[in-house]
Design a protein around this nucleic acid. Structure first.
Length: 504
DNA sequence: GTAGGGTTAG
């Protein structure tokens, strides 16, 4: 009964209540089955308080020697964002089996601690345990979040080499991984070769195409999904709406938004976020603002921030200031909000207000998140922060950067100094742009690899306008394909143009 | 009657 009611669609505390009832009655005593089930029920709803109580019950009754209970406890703490505790439990288990290892690896992979996940994956093999398809899903998920394509390819080869069963979940993880690592062709290939596809598989493909700015294809896949009689869910529509947003398909976006209700899907915050983004990017700031004002759920910081970003892009000062106020009320400690507001002022040449924002940040002890870009060369990930000089080959990188600057100037590019937010002299602004982390990473790519190797960059923030322009030029004058994964999407630079068609 | 896995807005 406890297990049964934790497996329904909308999980609740019901299984935990049942367990409490059982304890209150005093008999029969829970055994390893009961405990594993109720721990799992806690994990599903991240009930860490109740989980801890059951943990102490486990210790009192001696069931902590059951491998099922042990694994359930590791899983519980991993799902409750207590990875340190999960690890402690894991380390204390004397005999770890395939499932125990998979549990801890998935725990790290889920929260993006990729290196930990991967080193446990190696340790597991050294301990003589062979991974199966469930383990590999977590390892592939870890690869997806790094964006390191070579690593992902290596893991895919590993799956083939050890003849690990490629089931629905593993294929979906591969589609997602290839898409997130910037190789949409391989994502499509895996997807096309799947013998069957469920909602998550289709959604993965749609989201993947959306982040690559391939809106038409995403919408085509969506109609194929409907033809195949697979029901879309909320995530599917996040993909569909974000595809529209990334390509400026405003009327299509509205249409899909309206059709959600016909599919019986209630819009959630993510969908509102997509719609605000769609409207803002297309320049309909006023409409976006009205949309936010009339939302039936209270807008979260991301929605406000999207709106503020729109105001900044279009240089709409007053509304922007008002939006920033709402945002800072909700999220006074997020550095991004201050940077955005400061950029809004800088775009309007309001230098005094720029310094005021900077001062306010300083007062509140808030530091801007530095831009950081990485590039994988020969299986090693090189990381660059803005204005980084710590790399071993920093001198050579600077030489490449100078060459880039020269050649870019020669084709008539004038740096977009408005992308620099400080009130400094023009020349200084121009050199500040050259220090952006993606420039350093691209320069390193130019230095260490030769065409036709694709230069693949992963960046933690959005690409700035000037870097976007310069990268387009680099792709032409150096004849290199460059793929940049920024905070929200991919840009594929080739022969002087970008796949985003400058709409981003 | 047992434990581990895939898709989510800026």
């Amino acid at each position: 009964m406890i297990r049964g009611c934790s497996q329904i669609q909308n999980p609740s505390k019901e299984p935990i209540f049942l367990f409490k009832k059982l304890i209150k009655r005093g008999y029969p005593n829970p055994n390893s089955f009961t405990l594993a089930f109720v721990l799992k029920a806690c994990a599903i709803i991240s009930a860490s308080q109740e989980g801890r109580q059951i943990h102490s019950h486990v210790l009192r009754t001696g069931f902590n020697s059951s491998p099922f209970v042990q694994t359930a406890m590791v899983n519980l703490y991993a799902k409750c964002e207590e990875i340190g505790l999960a690890r402690k439990m894991f380390d204390e288990i004397p005999e770890r089996n395939l499932v125990t290892w998979s549990t801890i690896i998935s725990g790290y992979a889920r929260i993006g601690l990729v290196n930990e996940a991967l080193s446990l994956f190696r340790e597991m093999q050294m301990a003589g345990i062979s991974p199966d398809e469930v383990t590999m899903v977590s390892v592939i998920t870890a690869c997806a979040s790094t964006g390191a394509l070579d690593l992902g390819k290596w893991v895919h080869k590993f799956v083939d080499k050890y003849v690990i069963k490629v089931d629905l979940e593993l294929s979906t993880a591969l589609v997602n991984m290839y898409a997130k690592c910037g190789c949409i062709e391989r994502a499509k290939k895996v997807f096309d070769e799947m013998p069957q596809r469920d909602t998550k598989a289709w959604s993965s493909m749609i989201v993947g195409l959306a982040i690559h700015g391939l809106a038409e294809e995403a919408l085509e896949v969506f109609s194929r999904m409907l033809e195949a009689n697979v029901k879309p869910n909320q995530v599917t529509f996040v993909g569909v709406l974000s595809a529209c947003a990334h390509s400026g398909l405003v009327s299509e976006g509205w249409r899909f938004w309206s059709s959600m209700l016909e599919f019986g899907i209630e819009p959630v915050m993510e969908h509102y976020g997509c719609m605000v983004d769609l409207l803002c990017r297309a320049g309909f700031i006023e409409v976006a603002y009205k949309f936010v004002e009339t939302m039936p759920i209270s807008p979260n910081p991301i929605v406000w921030r999207t709106l503020l970003m729109g105001c900044k892009e279009k240089g709409i000062l007053e509304k922007g200031e008002f939006v920033a106020e709402r945002l800072l009320e909700l999220e006074p400690l997020n550095p991004e909000n201050y940077v955005l507001l400061s950029n809004l002022y800088a775009a309007n040449f309001q230098w005094e207000k720029v310094s005021y924002v900077r001062k306010k940040m300083k007062e509140n002890g808030i530091q801007a998140i530095p831009g950081c870009s990485s590039i994988e060369v020969d299986g090693f990930v090189h990381e660059f922060v803005v204005a980084d000089r710590s790399h071993q080959e920093s001198y050579e990188i600077r030489e490449v950067l100078r060459d880039v600057t020269d050649r870019v100037r020669r084709v008539g590019h004038d740096p977009w100094t408005s992308a620099v937010l400080h009130d400094v002299e023009d020349e200084e602004k121009k050199s500040a742009l050259c220090e952006h982390s993606e420039r350093l990473a691209i320069a390193y790519g130019l230095l260490k690899t030769k065409a036709p190797t694709v230069i693949r960059i992963v960046k933690n923030l959005r690409v700035c306008g000037d870097c976007h322009e310069v990268t387009k030029i680099i792709s032409k004058v150096y004849e290199r394909e460059i793929i940049v994964r920024d905070r929200v999407r991919f840009h594929r630079f080739f022969n002087g143009t970008c796949s985003c068609k400058d709409y981003w």
